[in-house]
Computed example of a mutant assay.
Amino acid sequence: MPGLHDITVTASMWASDGQYYLHGHEFDPTGFTYSGFNGLLAPLTPGNGITTPGTFAIILSGTETGPLTVTLELRATPPPSPALDPWDEIVEASLHLPEGDAFLIDAHDHTPFPSLSAYTGTPCRIRAHARGRDNAHDLGIVETPVEEHLIQIWPASTTELTEHKLTDQVGALSH
C-alpha cells in the first residue's frame, strides 16, 4: 500500500479478563464463544463469531489482570516466516477492519500504540505471538509484566487462519 512505512513500538498493555483487542468502530464481542477458538487470536465479526476475515480481533493473554509487554510491528510488506523457537504460540488471521480509525486497545479504551487507520478499509493480516502466558496465568493478577506478545500487521489478501504453533496450557484451556 502506498504511504505505509514499517513501524515498531514496544509498550506495556493492560490485560483485563485475560484479553485485549484490535478494533475500530465495529466492535461487538457479544455472543463470542470459545468454540473453534485456537486460544490466542480470534478474528470476529459482530453476530457471526469467529470468521475470516474478521472485522475486529480478540487476543487472549495469560495475564488475567495487569500489564503485559506488547511489541506492535506495522509493516508495509509481509514479515518473514515466524521464528518458532522463541514463542509458545503463533497464530495468523485475516482482518478487514472497517474504514476509519482502528487501534490495538485494552478493555478501558487505552492504547500506547499508533493508529492502525492505514490498514482499514482493505484486507490485512495479523500475526500474534505469545510467550509466558502459562506463568502469567498461574499468578492471576500481576503488577509487572511476565508475559510478552508480538503483534505484526501488514496488507494482504484474505486467506485462512494459520496456526503456526500452539503449545501453552492457556491456549489449550480455550479450545
Results as ranks from 00 to 15, higher is better:
residue 23 H to Y: 12
residue 38 N to T: 05
residue 22 L to N: 01
residue 45 T to F: 09
residue 35 S to R: 08
residue 16 S to L: 13
residue 13 M to E: 09
residue 53 P to K: 10
residue 13 M to L: 15
residue 21 Y to L: 09
residue 33 T to H: 10
residue 38 N to C: 05
residue 30 T to C: 01
residue 40 L to A: 03
residue 24 G to D: 09
residue 27 F to V: 06
residue 17 D to K: 07
residue 46 P to S: 13
residue 33 T to C: 10
residue 41 L to N: 07
residue 51 T to D: 13
residue 45 T to E: 08
residue 20 Y to D: 04
residue 55 T to D: 06
residue 28 D to N: 15
residue 30 T to R: 14
residue 56 F to T: 05
residue 28 D to R: 06
residue 30 T to A: 15
residue 26 E to R: 11
residue 61 S to T: 12
residue 39 G to N: 06
residue 35 S to I: 00
residue 24 G to V: 06
residue 12 S to L: 12
residue 33 T to R: 12
residue 26 E to K: 10
residue 36 G to V: 02
residue 19 Q to V: 02
residue 60 L to N: 05
residue 43 P to L: 10
residue 11 A to I: 12
residue 28 D to G: 02
residue 38 N to M: 08
residue 15 A to G: 03
residue 29 P to C: 11
residue 54 G to W: 01
residue 10 T to I: 14
residue 51 T to N: 10
residue 29 P to W: 09
residue 20 Y to W: 13
residue 58 I to K: 03
residue 44 L to S: 02
residue 22 L to H: 00
residue 23 H to S: 10
residue 45 T to G: 04
residue 18 G to M: 00
residue 53 P to A: 08
residue 61 S to N: 11
residue 32 F to E: 09
residue 15 A to W: 01
residue 48 N to Y: 11
residue 9 V to R: 13
residue 34 Y to S: 01
residue 14 W to Y: 10
residue 44 L to C: 13
residue 60 L to V: 02
residue 31 G to L: 14
residue 14 W to D: 04
residue 9 V to P: 06
residue 14 W to P: 00
residue 39 G to W: 01
residue 39 G to A: 07
residue 23 H to A: 09
residue 47 G to F: 14
residue 55 T to E: 13
residue 17 D to Q: 10
